[in-house]
Computed example of a mutant assay.
Amino acid sequence: MKSPSVGTRDAVTVAGEIFGLKSIAAYRSGLEINTNVTNNDAEEGLRQTLIAGKPVRIANKNLIDYIFLRSLEVAQSYDLPMQIHTGFGDKDLDMRLSNPLHLRAVLEDKRYSKSRIVLLHASYPFSREASYLASVYSQANILQLNQWLGAKKSREVVFSVLRDACIDGDLSVPEAVEAAKDIFARNAIHFYKITPANKVINSHSNLSQNLSGDLAIDVSLVRVMWVDGAGQHRCRAVPKKRFNDVVVKNGVGLAFAVMGFSSQMDGPAEGSGLTAVGETRLVPDLSTLRRIPWNKKDEMVLADMCIKPGEAWEYCPRDVLRRASKILKDEFDLEMNAGFENEFILLKMLKRYVI
């Protein structure tokens, strides 16, 4: 294996385009990281992983711990956050090992005292433990759930707390509004050192002036659209510059599990066989790129799901439609046409007089 110093040299060229690193060690061998793991331990772990055959699934603890620590060193050297999945996750994880308290050895190690660790998903159901770590160790930070249900619940809780603070006279209404903006936007923007134009900012600089008020942004977003297995429209919103520079060519990642989401919850339906392990690429079809009429700053584009360039994922809805259309044409000489049936009710205002 290369030494960390050699392995990080090439990172200089891309460090300015990266906003953080992420680890799923909790979902493999757990968060009780051995801070004394050696290069030889990692090499032996890699050898055992490779001779196990395909598909390769890294589960060797020594190898994972080594990768985790080297990644943390790289993140620290470039002042990048290190996101760590904690708490609830894949069905094959051992929940006992995903408790963030297991990270104490890492947090106590002086080599990583200047790191910026983010505990993802609020470490649920270990949120209290995560809160304790964040209050004791300056390196530890908590990021709330990013799924729709988590965001909804977070807003409800924050609203309740800020409302009570206003009623009790602890905060004025304008102060509560500013606190909400910090919690849901500004803190993350400042922590990850990004501007609305998707550029790195100095950690000591103030937020851009256009973040005040309603946090309006100058750069438009592109909503990369797909339809999930439940027939719901979903999207990944990408800054326009990143869309042009990266997504047009390489697409944007999407976990397999998302196609298994039901209409009742943001989680894969039981029996779908789809998990958060592995991802497909949402590759935009530029012929469908349109400006959104009700939001002129945003655009939308339909996307194909590919497992590699030019090869559609078996669950890609657009490719399924193409294959079905081809069968109809080749075997039955039929062509499929689609239309919309808009149903509506006309109401008439009636005045009623009470005598």
Results as ranks from 00 to 15, higher is better:
Pro309Thr: 00
Ile345Gln: 14
Gln209Asn: 08
Val219Lys: 03
Ala303Asp: 04
Arg234Gln: 14
Ile217Leu: 04
Leu215Arg: 11
Ile292Ser: 07
Gln264Ile: 03
Arg234Leu: 04
Leu274Ile: 13
Asp333Arg: 09
Leu207Ser: 08
Asp319His: 11
Lys297Gly: 09
Cys235Met: 11
Glu314Lys: 06
Arg236Pro: 00
Glu341Lys: 12
Ser220His: 03
Ser205Thr: 14
Lys241Met: 02
Leu282Cys: 01
Lys329Asp: 09
Gly278Gln: 00
Val301His: 04
Pro293Val: 13
His233Gln: 11
Phe256Val: 04
Leu286Asp: 07
Val258Cys: 02
Gly310Tyr: 02
Asp333Cys: 07
Ser263Cys: 07
Ala230Asn: 10
Asp218Gln: 10
Val301Phe: 03
Val248Gln: 11
Arg234Ile: 00
Thr280Ser: 09
Gly253Phe: 12
Ala324Arg: 14
Glu331Lys: 13
Asp333Lys: 09
Ala276Asp: 14
Val238Glu: 14
Met305Asn: 00
Leu211Ile: 05
Arg318Met: 05
Ser263Thr: 10
Asn244His: 10
Ile307Met: 04
Gln232Cys: 08
Pro309Gly: 06
Ser205Lys: 10
Arg242Gly: 07
Leu221Ala: 10
Ala338Trp: 10
Val238Ile: 15
Leu321Asn: 05
Gly231His: 05
Arg322Met: 13
Leu211Arg: 10
Ala276His: 12
Ala276Val: 06
Cys235Ser: 15
Gln232Leu: 13
Val258Thr: 09
Ala312Lys: 04
Trp294Ser: 15
Leu274Val: 10
Gln209Pro: 05
Glu270Met: 05
